[in-house]
């Protein structure tokens, strides 16, 4: 069987899987961004209780494995009556995990905004909330976008784990093809190329463009 024939037979399955991978990736990214902003801000709160909750969340999700979290959410939560569809459990676990890493990026970027900016906002008598949303966060966004570029790639890679709870993403499909055909190089090799193309030629250029756009918009360029 030539590689072309292999693609003719299994290509559509892998294409379906790729679509699901992309959907899982996008949803996981949304969850990660929300979690990151929320817990990143909580980590900077003046209230020690709020700060403590955020710290515990971040340490638990960064201190254990994504796979453990995924299995816990999918296999253990139903025992407490919280039944999540495998599709939802998949992107939710990836997003919650990566959001914990993102929260540290948010926190670091906010703290990297020069002190003078905080002081100028005080001198204009802005409220704490307005100071954060109008002065600090826009500048923090520009600072944190480059590391987010790396994190987003980690999210894409992280979604491969959802195959282990039988979400029919690319990883899942090529594993099925491998079991059926034992054409491992073709199956796994194709998936490697697809992930590589997604990461290197779609996600990374998009993040770079976003960086350029934001720094131009924010007047740093």
């Amino acid at each position: 069987m030539t590689y072309i024939e292999f693609l003719q037979v299994h290509g559509s399955r892998m294409a379906d899987g790729t679509v699901l991978t992309v959907v899982q990736f996008l949803l996981a990214t949304v969850v990660a961004v929300v979690v990151a902003v929320l817990f990143g801000l909580m980590r900077l709160s003046r209230n020690p209780g709020v700060r403590g909750v955020a710290t515990v969340y971040i340490e638990i999700f960064r201190g254990t494995s994504l796979l453990v979290q995924l299995f816990w959410i999918f296999f253990v939560l139903p025992l407490f009556g919280l039944n999540l569809d495998k599709f939802v459990a998949g992107f939710l676990a990836v997003g919650l995990n990566m959001g914990a890493y993102g929260a540290e990026l948010v926190r670091g970027a906010i703290r990297a905004v020069p002190r003078g900016q905080w002081e100028a906002a005080v001198a204009l008598n802005m409220t704490d909330r307005k100071r954060m949303w109008r002065v600090i966060l826009p500048q923090a966004l520009v600072i944190m976008l480059p590391p987010w570029g790396n994190l987003v790639i980690e999210i894409l890679k992280g979604t491969a784990l959802v195959a282990l709870i039988s979400v029919a993403d690319l990883m899942f499909e090529v594993r099925q093809i491998n079991i059926a055909t034992f054409l491992s190089v073709q199956a796994f090799g194709t998936a490697l190329i697809v992930y590589y193309v997604l990461a290197r030629f779609l996600v990374t250029p998009f993040m770079r463009a976003l960086e350029r756009f934001m720094s131009r918009k924010i007047g740093r360029a």
């Binding site: 790639i153 894409l156 890679k157 992280g158 979604t159 491969a160 784990l161 195959a163 282990l164 990883m171 090529v174 594993r175 491998n178 034992f182 054409l183 491992s184 190089v185 796994f188 090799g189 998936a191 490697l192 992930y195 590589y196 990461a199 290197r200 990374t204």
Partner: peptide
Amino acid sequence: VELIRSTPLLLQVFFVFYVGPQ
């Protein structure tokens, strides 16, 4: 290096394990 860094470890694990026997 870029290829390794931008593809899932899980996939690489499968690749290394199953490609040899082929």
